[in-house]
Design a protein around this nucleic acid. Structure first.
Lengths: 182, 182
DNA sequence: CTAGATTTTGGCCGTGCGGTCAGAAATTGA
DNA sequence: TCAATTTCTGACCGCACGGCCAAAATCTAG
C-alpha cells in the first residue's frame, strides 16, 4: 500500500495505474487483485489509513484545551505539523479525495466528504461564540473557509518547497482568529 | 467547445473523452482533431476563454475603486456574481486547472498557475497596508487563503445548490476584511 | 455549374487500462 | 516430510483511450 501512496503522490491519481503501483512495489499486478476487491478498495484503504492518522494526531493535540481560540490555533498548527512529516501520504490523500470515482462515475469523496470536518470546525467556532470569545458570524462559512485554507496551505507548500509551512500556519491561525474576535 | 465545457462539468476531466465530447456536440471525433492540435489544445482553449471572462468581469467591477477594503470586498462579491451566471464553465475550468497534464505527465496548470491571481490579490492587501486601512501581515498567506476561500465557496455551492452563494460571499468578504483591519 | 478548398465522417491504429485466473512458488501445520 | 493452504506470477482478456486519415460531403469563388 505504501507503493500506492508513493505512486499516487508522484504521478497523480489518473496516472496511478495498477501496473505502475505494482511495478513500484516490485510485485505482480495480480497481488493487488488478490488482496483488494479492486482498485477502488485499495484507494479507500489508503484514504482511511491516512485520514485516520491525521485525525488522531490533531485530536491528541487538541485534548484538554478549552478555549475556542486555543482549539482553532491548535487545529491549524497541528495539521501543519502532521503535514510536514507526511507529505507523500497527504499528497496521495488529496489526489484520491478529489478524483476517486465509483463504478457508476460518481465522485467517491469530493467536497461532501468534508462534512465531518466542517461539523467539527463549526463546533469550535460555535463554542467561541457561546463563550464570548468570538463575535457573531456564519460558522458554516468560517468552517468551509478554514478547511480550504488549510488544504491550500499544504498544496502551496508542496508546490513551493522553500515556503515556510510553520510560518504559514501561524499566519493563517492569526488571520482566522482575527476574523472571529469580538 | 461548449460541449467540451458541458461534458467536463458533468462527468469530470478524467471521464471527458474526445468520444464523449464529440457525441455531446453531435459531431465526429475527427472534427476535434481537425480544429485542434490535440485534446490538450482544446482544454487550453477552454481555460483561456473561461478564465478571460472572469478576469474581465472582475476587473470591470473593480475599475475606479481606491479603497483596499472596497477592492477586496468587490473582488469576492464580483467573482461570486460571475459564478452564479457561469456555473458550468467554472466547474469545467476547475476540473481542467486541477487535472490537465502535458504529454510528459506534468500538470499543465496546478497551483503555480494561480501565481497571477496571488500577485493581484497581494497588490490589494499591500495597498491596504500602505494606506493604513490594514494591519501588518503576510500578504502572500492572505492572498493564497483568499483565493482558496473563493474557489471553495464555489465548490461548496456546486455541491449544495440550496446554499446562498451571495450570502456566503458577503460573509467571506466580512471575515477577510476583519482578518486585516488595524 | 464546377473545380478547388474546407470540413466532416467513421473506421482503424497502437497503447494502456482494470481485472482474471491457471499454474507456480512459498508457507504452514501436522 | 508432505499435503493443504496461501500467496504470487504474468499472460491474457475485453474495453476505452487519443489520434490518424482516406473518402465523402459541404462550401465557396469564379
Amino acid at each position: 500500500m505504501a507503493s500506492a501512496i508513493e505512486v499516487i503522490a508522484e504521478v497523480g491519481f489518473a496516472q496511478a495505474s495498477l501496473a505502475r503501483i505494482a511495478a513500484h512495489a516490485d510485485i505482480s499486478k495480480g497481488v493487488i487483485s488478490y488482496h483488494f476487491a479492486g482498485k477502488e478498495e485499495l484507494m479507500v484503504e489508503v484514504v482511511e489509513r491516512t485520514y485516520g492518522a491525521i485525525a488522531e494526531h490533531v485530536l491528541t493535540k487538541m485534548q484538554g484545551l478549552q478555549s475556542a481560540t486555543e482549539l482553532l490555533r491548535t487545529h491549524v498548527l497541528s495539521v501543519a505539523e502532521h503535514m510536514r512529516g507526511h507529505r507523500t501520504q497527504l499528497k496521495a490523500l488529496g489526489e484520491i479525495f478529489t478524483n476517486l470515482r465509483t463504478a457508476d462515475g460518481k465522485l467517491r469523496y469530493g467536497i461532501k466528504a468534508s462534512e465531518p470536518t466542517y461539523l467539527a470546525l463549526e463546533g469550535i467556532y460555535r463554542l467561541g461564540q457561546e463563550s464570548g470569545e468570538f463575535r457573531d458570524f456564519d460558522v458554516r462559512v468560517m468552517a468551509v473557509t478554514h478547511s480550504s485554507a488549510v488544504d491550500t496551505m499544504f498544496a502551496y507548500w508542496m508546490a513551493h518547497p522553500g515556503h515556510d509551512l510553520d510560518a504559514h500556519a501561524r499566519e493563517l491561525a492569526d488571520l482566522l482568529e482575527r476574523a472571529c474576535v469580538t
